[in-house]
């Protein structure tokens, strides 16, 4: 039995690439590359630009983890995943983490064997309609045809919203974002529903963005965040605190351009974050708890930037996506973004 297994392994290893589950951090280090599941293409969140470089706030989280582990944010290989295969790809160990606008839910966290480590974008499901329809509220959508991208919580929220309001609709289920765009712009459906962020991103790509409006109703809570496989707590911690480091950096006003000056800050939390302070008198910084070097958070901020920088660069009001901070502002600024203290 064992021999057969090792024979099979030996045979297949010749042809196939190898991954393992044991300790993800060791695997990643041994490989010299972080494998990160990204979207197949969602502007502002994860999309290759003309030069083929992935850009977006989701892929920035992957870069942050790579910066923390290797001190080099470019050591990431992005594996585009559809919403259908994203969980199996993570479960099977093909990728080390998943960061592609995925909603944190009980079932995914518990039953599907994932572990969500935080939220990098507070989203909610919205509706987009052509401005020419003259609709100003989702409650006027009785009898409409609705394009839904399947394989998400979207179809469930949609069903719940319409039945709760006693309205009927025709569901037009499509597989990918771009198919939904095609069906919606062709007029196959009146409404396109997905996470509001996705609607903004799609709209930015339309020939005439101003001809479409996103309705004010947000019908669901969609906390989007990175996830890892269940059962490797140490690795989950690394991803979790990489994200937290970006948020704390914004809170403390540390940016990629002033991070070197901030090493002289008087704020003890900043000093802990940037790897200047030591844990007690151990002679080592806070990196040791995560199994990383002490400057891991410094590298994140230096190479990727803080949360606000990432947001403004990819989806903020000065980009074609044009999303306000809203819920995603820090708790101090009226939003709900809140990272645990760094100590």
């Amino acid at each position: 039995m064992r021999q057969l297994k090792s024979l099979l392994m030996a045979l297949t290893l010749v042809l196939f690439t190898s991954t393992s589950f044991a300790a993800t951090l060791d695997d990643v280090k041994a490989r010299g590359m972080l494998k990160c599941g990204s979207n197949t293409g969602l502007a502002g969140f994860g999309l290759p630009n003309d030069a083929g470089v992935w850009e977006g706030i989701d892929v920035d989280v992957c870069r942050a983890v790579a910066a923390a582990v290797f001190g080099d944010a470019t050591k990431v290989e992005f594996v585009p995943t559809t919403s259908k295969v994203r969980f199996t790809v993570l479960q099977s160990g093909e990728i080390d983490m998943l960061s592609r606008n995925t909603t944190w839910t009980l079932q995914r966290d518990v039953e599907l064997g994932l572990e969500f480590v935080g939220v990098n974008y507070y989203d909610g499901q919205g509706f987009m309609v052509p401005a020419s329809l003259g609709v100003s509220s989702a409650s006027e959508l009785d009898g409409a045809s609705v394009c839904i991208q399947v394989g998400t919580t979207t179809e469930m929220n949609l069903a719940d919203y319409f039945s709760a309001n006693g309205m009927s609709y025709e569901a037009v289920p499509v597989e990918t974002n771009s198919e939904a765009d095609a069906a919606y712009t062709a007029g196959r459906c009146d409404v396109y529903t997905t996470d509001a962020s996705g609607l903004y991103a799609s709209r930015a790509g339309y020939p005439d963005p101003s001809a479409h409006v996103v309705l004010p109703e947000i019908v669901s809570k969609e906390p989007l965040g990175p996830s890892v496989r269940h059962g490797d707590g140490a690795w989950a911690d690394i991803v979790r605190w990489s994200l937290n480091a970006m948020i704390i950096a914004e809170e403390k006003g540390i940016t990629s351009s002033n991070v070197d000056e901030m090493k002289n800050s008087k704020d003890p939390e900043v000093l802990r974050l940037l790897g200047v302070a030591q844990v007690g008198d151990t002679g080592a910084g806070y990196g040791q708890w995560l199994g990383l070097s002490d400057d891991w958070a410094y590298q994140i901020i230096k190479q990727v930037g803080n949360y606000s920088e990432s947001f403004e660069k990819h989806i903020g009001p000065n980009t074609p996506i044009n999303i306000q901070r809203g819920l995603n502002a820090l708790y101090k600024d009226g939003g709900i973004l809140y990272a645990p203290p760094f100590r």
């Binding site: 179809e155 949609l158 069903a159 719940d160 569901a171």
Partner: peptide
């Protein structure tokens, strides 16, 4: 199931 199928020969709702 939690989702609707509009094209169906028998009645089907998300419940």
């Amino acid at each position: 199931a939690g989702y609707d199928i509009s094209f169906s020969l028998i009645d089907f709702t998300s419940k």
